[in-house]
Amino acid sequence: MSDKKEVLFSKKNRKLLTDPLNDNNPVTTQVLGICSALAITVQLKPAIVMAISVLVVMSVANVVVSLMRNLIPSRIRIIVQLVVIAALVILVDQVLKAFVYDVSKELSVFVGLIITNCIIMGRLEAFALGNGVWKSFLDGLGNAFGYGWILIAVAFFRELLGAGTLFGFPVIEKLGLYEIGYENNGMMILPPMALVTVGIIIWIQRTKNRDLIES
């Protein structure tokens, strides 16, 4: 417990929270969790629900594993981590089914597949197993936000351009763009465009921060 005297939001801790938002983003820099970014970003609402679900699972799992980190024999650590994540995912799934049934139906297997989301596993392995509870919590939160904002950004463009709506609200129709000949782009609904959209975000990010470009 060497970090006991450290302030709650010291510079180092703040970095844990803000780094994954941009320069060390789990999706755009580490290229993890791509599968869910493709699958559930057709509309904004499921994307936001997914982002929140991952946020909950990731931050709590990080805290739990960090608490247990000195008890887990390293030979079986992966299975222990999986049990923790799986328990949390089932909890989240049940909550979604109880309160936002239609969205949970739309997300279908992808809630269950949070278990296999490499970002969560990666953070548990790389961070929570070796760091204190508070730091792990911040790390989980930061990475979940980093993942979430990409998801929401992609979903924003896909829903707006693909279906002409935002949260189901017919934005394009209200703006009167259909009357002057505009039509929705059917390709934005298809999974490849999610990949292209993520690609464009990565492109912009690396143009701004050239250190991220791989040699």
Binding site: E183, N185, G186, M187
Partner: peptide
């Protein structure tokens, strides 16, 4: 191909 899939 883009137009083919976007505006079939």
């Amino acid at each position: 191909a883009f137009l083919f899939f976007a505006h079939p």
